[in-house]
């Protein structure tokens, strides 16, 4: 059961960062995942008053505040036009509308959860995270960084010309993915990101040819859990990469 002693609405990122340096304190995202944990939190730090719940689009990029909800990115016309609906495809089956109205982009990405569909799709794009202390680093680098007490302020998605798509398999529609996959294609190069292995998203980049899906499947590691075995996931991987490539128009 989650227990919270004190709740603070931060008035600045500096205040939030100072409070979050203490290990027993915690930044609140949507609070959805946190709610299921068995933790004692001294101070829950809410970033809701910092204006970080917007998605801003400029000529060269999208800037997504950490408190923007998953539903906001699902419905954002510009983001979905740029990704040919890949972002919407990745999030639209995450539980229900009510949960997606609460879960935040920052909370989902900062957790770097193995099951995350969001991490997978954004890793396939030219994405960066802005950290309060750590500055701007690529999302792929962030995904492999150890957990620390920094704050993910926003996600930046550059409008690099590429074709992308998302594919996944779920045992039931709103369950976690058994395996998820996002691809992006630039010329004859392709990047495949595979998540829910059940470990977190991992990348494979290479020349786009007939053997690309099999190369992805044989290069990445997979594991077994209640949703699927390692062998099943490896088979699934090549199929999903192929499907995603076809969807992205990079059919091979």
């Amino acid at each position: 059961m989650l227990q919270i002693k004190r709740y603070v609405r931060a008035t600045s990122l500096a205040e939030a960062y100072e409070l979050n340096r203490k290990k027993s304190n915690c930044i609140l995202g949507g609070g959805v995942w946190l709610r299921l944990s068995n933790r004692r939190i001294d101070t829950a730090i809410d970033l809701s008053d910092l204006g970080l719940d917007q998605i801003e689009e400029s000529e060269g990029e999208f800037s997504i505040g950490c408190m923007a909800t998953i539903r906001q990115i699902e419905r954002h016309e510009g983001l979905n036009a740029y990704t040919s609906g890949a972002v919407r495809d990745a999030v639209q089956d995450i539980v229900g509308v009510q949960l997606r109205n609460m879960a935040t982009v920052g909370g989902s990405l900062f957790g770097r959860f193995g099951f995350s569909d969001l991490l997978t799709v954004f890793c396939a794009l030219d994405s960066y995270v802005e950290l309060y202390q750590g500055g701007i680093i690529s999302l792929r680098e962030f995904a492999n960084k150890p957990y620390d007490r920094d704050i993910l302020v926003r996600l930046i998605v550059k409008k690099t010309p590429l074709a992308c798509a998302f594919a996944c398999v779920r045992n039931t529609r709103t369950d976690f993915s058994v395996l998820n996959c996002a691809v992006s294609v630039q010329g004859n190069r392709a990047l495949a990101v595979v998540g829910a292995r059940p470990m977190k998203a991992a990348c494979y980049e290479g020349e786009l040819d007939e053997s690309f899906p099999e190369r992805v499947a044989s290069s990445l590691s997979f594991g077994s859990n209640l949703r699927g075995s390692e062998a099943y996931r490896r088979k699934l991987c090549a199929v999903l990469v192929r499907r995603a490539l076809e969807k992205a128009g990079g059919k091979r």
């Binding site: 919270i4 709740y7 609140l28 949507g30 609070g31 959805v32 709610r35 829950a44 809410d46 809701s48 509308v97 009510q98 949960l99 109205n101 609460m102």
Partner: peptide
């Protein structure tokens, strides 16, 4: 446990009252 928070449907079991 669906309620509207500012006219948006949310799950009240996962939302802190302070928020």
């Amino acid at each position: 446990c669906t309620v509207f928070l500012e006219d948006t449907p949310v799950l009240s079991c996962a939302l802190l009252a302070v928020r």
